[in-house]
Amino acid sequence: MSGWIAVLTASLISFALKLAGYTVPPARLEHPRVLRVTEVLPAALLASLVVLQTFSTGTHLVLDARAAGLGVAVMALLLRAPFIVVVIVAAATAAGLRALGWG
């Protein structure tokens, strides 16, 4: 039952924060420093999620096929490949390495 309490508490906190966001005066949101932070925040959050999902399993750091897939994806992006190609090449790399027994 404590799992449900945690989910409900997190949901209420999330809703309260979203509601609080609507009460912030627009003048505060148009401040140059706030604009700079809000422009880079989504990219920083996405980068942290990618790193966390790529290099960790539970509480351990790992270096496996996911890291190789990420490396191939970065190389494909640098070569200006379309996004779907980047995803397919990265997934194929990770799957191939796993099939060979690495990770």
Score class of each variant (00 low, 15 high):
residue 84 I to R: 13
residue 20 A to P: 00
residue 92 A to C: 11
residue 61 L to Q: 13
residue 56 S to I: 05
residue 86 V to P: 00
residue 61 L to G: 07
residue 29 L to V: 09
residue 82 P to F: 10
residue 18 K to E: 06
residue 6 A to F: 10
residue 63 L to W: 11
residue 78 L to P: 01
residue 65 A to T: 01
residue 31 H to L: 07
residue 93 T to H: 03
residue 53 Q to G: 03
residue 79 L to R: 12
residue 60 H to Q: 14
residue 98 R to H: 05
residue 51 V to C: 07
residue 78 L to D: 04
residue 52 L to G: 03
residue 10 A to P: 00
residue 65 A to D: 01
residue 53 Q to M: 14
residue 42 P to D: 03
residue 34 V to Y: 12
residue 77 L to S: 09
residue 103 G to M: 02
residue 13 I to C: 10
residue 3 G to V: 02
residue 55 F to Q: 07
residue 49 L to N: 08
residue 91 A to P: 00
residue 97 L to G: 08
residue 41 L to W: 07
residue 2 S to C: 07
residue 47 A to E: 12
residue 27 A to C: 05
residue 37 V to L: 10
residue 91 A to D: 08
residue 74 V to G: 02
residue 78 L to C: 12
residue 55 F to R: 03
residue 102 W to T: 05
residue 49 L to V: 13
residue 18 K to T: 04
residue 53 Q to R: 14
residue 76 A to K: 02
residue 100 L to T: 07
residue 32 P to T: 06
residue 23 T to A: 14
residue 76 A to S: 06
residue 25 P to W: 11
residue 84 I to D: 14
residue 41 L to Q: 05
residue 11 S to R: 09
residue 12 L to S: 09
residue 66 R to D: 03
residue 49 L to S: 10
residue 45 L to C: 11
residue 26 P to Q: 13
residue 72 V to F: 07
residue 24 V to G: 13
residue 96 G to W: 05
residue 52 L to H: 12
residue 31 H to V: 04
residue 90 A to Q: 01
residue 13 I to N: 08
residue 87 V to L: 13
residue 59 T to C: 06
residue 70 L to E: 07
residue 101 G to P: 09
residue 8 L to V: 15
residue 47 A to K: 01
residue 5 I to C: 14
